[in-house]
Design a protein around this nucleic acid. Structure first.
Length: 632
DNA sequence: TTAGGGTTAG
């Protein structure tokens, strides 16, 4: 009988007995009697393994007490299985208590199990301490010890010492030890050491190839990672699921949909389609390559969607700038009772910011606070808190944004930029500049984005003198070279204030003039102040730019500018040009946030399944007039 | 009785 079938038979027998042993209808002494009649050490160990795999701590603990009563604790195998059970249930304190059991001498099995436990529970330093103790008391490590000990190394010198030991013990060619070694060297960014271990092995299995592929990807050498992947195929090693997820993440980073699709072909051919992690990696790849339709097909085919599946499809929508899709899938996720995590929230918050969906954003912030998601091992999760701040700021809720800002202990330059930009975009120029001064007091070095915020604050508030001064000082005093974004802010500022001549002169003077946004800002100012002559010159400049840069916005702005000053013939001429060039006006898009979600509409869009009901509802609460309802 | 890989954001 082979190992597998032995295990199957054993589990069937134990299943029946176990039912009796766990029966709530029997008193403890009776259960103990059943146990003593039918159970031996092998059965206990088998059960403990099963409890460990299912993280069934209560039954594991119960079995532990029965084992003590039955006198099984002097057996080394019981100790090892118990340590393993407690480790897998994340109870390292209990595991250590078992390890120190006074009636038992600690052998290599017990040491291996406790070191593995600490490594799996992300406490490598504790694991390494047990290895040192093991050597101190003279217990010889074996080929099972080293894969864990290598992973337990927290410093380069420790790995080097262990690596030396492997040669002394003749374990330098063991594939389990070597793959741990390769991964640990990569953890310390020591690609050359990892490569040496890999190349000196006479036989390499798929795990080792995976380690090298992921290692190159980790240090940003994506092309080299692809070369290693190809070489692996040439050497006749078939990719496993882990290889597939790794290489898919590489092609997604490269935005290489063709090779990604080729991997999709391998997935189908090798029958990996049913593996959720593989499907999730495919969704991510198609999402990052902006092929949302393919991502959706994969997503719909997953039977048991996990957190990764939802996060991948939500992020895919966000990457394809489909904010509506992002929120739709987030709602679907909640309806499927899958709880969001930090990654879900960071993907969803920008969509809330885009739609100024304050209700949605506030709910997410509440969920985050209740579940302690704003914190990580470094204290406050500054990136997540920045996303919340940005959401509140973009929704115009500056008080809440400021509250989150104040509560974030480890603010970075982005935190300050979000607040400066938030105040600037809502017309609080003075508050934005005050934030900038506080930022300097806090000795945070401003960057290019800070000055976009500061200059746009000056522009919106009409602080001409200060705006000019900031532009002059930003390079000299702060070492930030003005870019086209900064000049656009200044031109916008001068234009809004009616200093059209100065704005035009500046636009002419600066390098990289072929920037549409810059000239559009000036065109907008010409329209605002009814200066169609200068507007015409600016308009012609825009038209001379590459036609692909010239969207419908500039044509519409120009025709409207001529309209404002009564030059209708020229306005019509622009409209005719639009027709000739086949430029279509992008339809207007609007949205409304109601209690049950966000509704997005574009002009003439009648595709919403509950359009009529929604219009009735909107009329009822005074959002729409009856004529609209009648036209629906 | 004990051991080595994976996917999602910024």
């Amino acid at each position: 009988m082979n190992q597998m079938s032995k295990k199957t038979v054993l589990s069937k027998i134990i299943g029946k007995k176990h039912h009796l042993f766990s029966s709530p209808f029997l008193s403890l002494p009776s259960r103990l009697l059943v146990f003593q009649m039918h159970y031996d050490v092998a059965t206990c160990n088998f059960l403990l393994q099963s409890y460990a795999n299912h993280k069934n701590l209560p039954e594991g603990k119960q079995l532990h007490s029965v084992m003590i009563t039955s006198g099984f604790m002097h057996l080394p195998s019981s100790i090892t299985s118990l340590i393993n059970m407690y480790s897998k249930c994340n109870q390292m304190e209990q595991a250590v208590l078992v390890f120190h059991d006074p009636y038992h001498e600690r052998n290599v099995f017990a040491y291996n199990a406790i070191i593995a436990g600490f490594v799996a529970n992300r406490l490598p330093a504790n694991g390494f301490q047990f290895y040192k103790r093991m050597r101190a008391v003279g217990v010889m490590p074996d080929k099972f010890t080293f894969p864990c000990v290598v992973r337990a190394c927290c410093e380069f010198m420790e790995v080097r010492k262990i690596h030396g030991c492997l040669f002394k013990l003749g374990l330098e060619l063991d594939m389990f030890v070597s793959s741990a070694l390769v991964n640990t060297y990569l953890k310390f960014d020591l690609m050359e050491n990892a490569k040496k271990v890999f190349e000196e092995l006479p036989v390499r299995d798929v795990v080792l190839w995976n380690a090298m592929i992921n290692g190159y990807a980790q240090i940003g050498h994506l092309n080299k990672a692809v070369v290693v992947f190809k070489k692996m195929g040439e050497e006749g090693i078939s990719p496993c699921r882990f290889t597939i997820t790794g290489i898919l993440s590489i092609f997604s980073l490269m935005g290489d949909v063709n090779n990604g699709r080729a991997i999709h072909g391998i997935v189908t051919k090798m029958g990996y389609s049913s593996c959720v992690a593989v499907s999730n990696a495919l969704i991510d790849m198609y999402g990052k390559c902006k092929h949302i339709e393919d991502a959706l097909v994969i997503f719909e085919m997953i039977n048991e969607k996990d957190l990764f599946s939802w996060n991948s499809i939500i992020s895919a929508h966000e990457q394809c700038v489909d904010h509506d899709g992002t929120l739709r899938f987030f709602d679907k996720m909640l309806a499927s009772r899958v709880l969001p995590d930090v990654i879900t929230i960071t993907a969803v918050l920008p969509a809330c910011s885009y739609f100024a969906a304050l209700m949605h954003g506030r709910e997410i912030h509440g969920y985050m606070t209740v579940n302690g998601l704003g914190k990580n091992e470094d204290g406050d999760d500054v990136l997540l808190n920045n996303a919340v701040m940005d959401m509140y700021a973009k929704c115009g809720c500056l008080k809440n944004a400021h509250r989150v800002f104040d509560r974030t202990s480890n603010k970075d330059v982005a935190s300050w930029n979000i607040m400066i930009m938030g105040y600037a975009m809502h017309g609080y120029g003075q508050e934005a500049l005050d934030m900038f001064h506080h930022m300097r007091e806090a000795q945070i070095k401003p960057d290019a984005i800070t000055f976009v915020g500061v200059l746009s604050a000056c522009s919106h508030a009409g602080f001409l003198r200060q705006g000019r001064s900031f532009l002059a000082r930003m390079e000299l005093e702060f070492g930030v070279v003005p870019t086209i974004e900064h000049y656009t802010c200044i031109i916008d500022m001068l234009g809004r204030a009616g200093h059209l001549g100065e704005a035009y002169e500046l636009a002419e003077r600066i390098p990289l003039q072929d920037n549409l946004v810059l000239w559009m800002a000036l065109l907008g100012a010409c329209r605002l102040h009814g200066n169609a002559d200068l507007g015409k010159v600016v308009g012609e400049k825009i038209m001379r730019l590459e036609p692909k840069h010239c969207g419908s916005g500039s044509y519409v702005l120009m025709s409207s500018m001529y309209g404002v000053v009564g030059r209708y013939e020229e306005a019509l001429q622009v409209r005719r040009m639009m027709k000739e060039q086949n430029v279509k006006k992008t339809p207007g898009c609007s949205w409304i946030e109601l209690k049950d979600g966000l509704y997005v509409f574009s002009m003439g869009d009648r595709t919403h399944p509950e359009l009529n009901a929604l219009i009735h509802c909107l009329c009822g609460i005074g959002y729409l007039h009856d004529e609209v309802m009648n036209s629906a």
